[in-house]
Design a protein around this nucleic acid. Structure first.
Lengths: 139, 139
DNA sequence: GTTGACCTTCCAGTAACTGGAGGCCCTATC
DNA sequence: GATAGGGCCTCCAGTTACTGGAAGGTCAAC
């Protein structure tokens, strides 16, 4: 199978598939004309990678997961650990973004958004605290 | 003021401050010895940048915000628009992460995490659907 | 005069691709 | 046989926002 077909089947761009070969995630054969020649197992691997990446696993996570997948003597604990660490990362990111969101939406709500220059968003970024108005929500 | 002092005051690493000069966000003066010489206004700008970055604004957003901040004829609507677009980006990211989180935590919960090889996480990534067990929770 | 902290520039690397240039291969059509 | 097109190839550069490190100049203190 040529790269175009595999791209269609796996949903990954051909560029990405070449990149995955570059970094050693897949090792397609080569036809006599130099074209990459993908086996079913390669397509399977690439689909695996596509789903792992869609779940946000890093490339290095993917590499480990592929290795574990191939190793029928694996302990599921190893897989679970990778997934749990990733879950923690996701939770951290969500927490971070949620906090940003809170501050930002607060500021956006406070901004008139009209033709006048007065803007609480800029005021906050510049920390223009007038005496007596220092009441930052202790955050 | 030298870069080290400014780094302490603004909370930004010296490396980052140099980078911000590189990309034209600040333009400190130079002393006769070649050292950067920061004015109060530079420090203020850098603190502004630090807070904007902490809210997740991109560097290009920061550039625009600084320009608006300097322009006393600005319309707050312009600032608000930047902030709202950023808020949308944040919401998208949160939604994406939340979905990942849901799928992943589902899988993690289903995984025994012991010495045995059987692993629903890998099974899902590999899409090993046995006939009759296709009951993917519809998204 | 030498140590050590601070400053300088420049280069490379990070994560995971993506875009584009320049060029070969294959099939079909004239 | 020539040509047009689409697909494939490699290699290089760019993306975001820094960060680390090398090689070397500056300054205050001892």
């Amino acid at each position: 199978m040529n790269i175009g077909d595999v791209a269609d089947l796996s949903g990954l761009p051909a560029k990405t598939i070449r990149y995955y070969e570059d970094i050693g995630l897949v090792e397609p054969l080569r036809s006599s004309n130099g074209y990459r020649s993908f086996r079913q197992s390669d397509v399977h691997k690439l689909a695996f990678l596509g789903r792992a990446r869609a779940l946000g696993f890093t490339i290095e996570d993917c590499r480990s997961l592929l290795k574990l997948y191939a190793d029928t003597d694996r302990a599921s604990a190893e897989v679970k650990q990778i997934a749990e660490e990733h879950l923690d990362r996701i939770d951290c990111k969500i927490a971070e973004l949620t906090e940003m969101r809170a501050t930002l939406s607060h500021l956006v709500d406070a901004c008139a958004g009209d033709h006048r220059p007065d803007c609480p968003i800029l005021a906050d970024l510049a920390m223009e605290q007038k005496a007596g108005s220092i009441s930052k929500a202790s955050g």
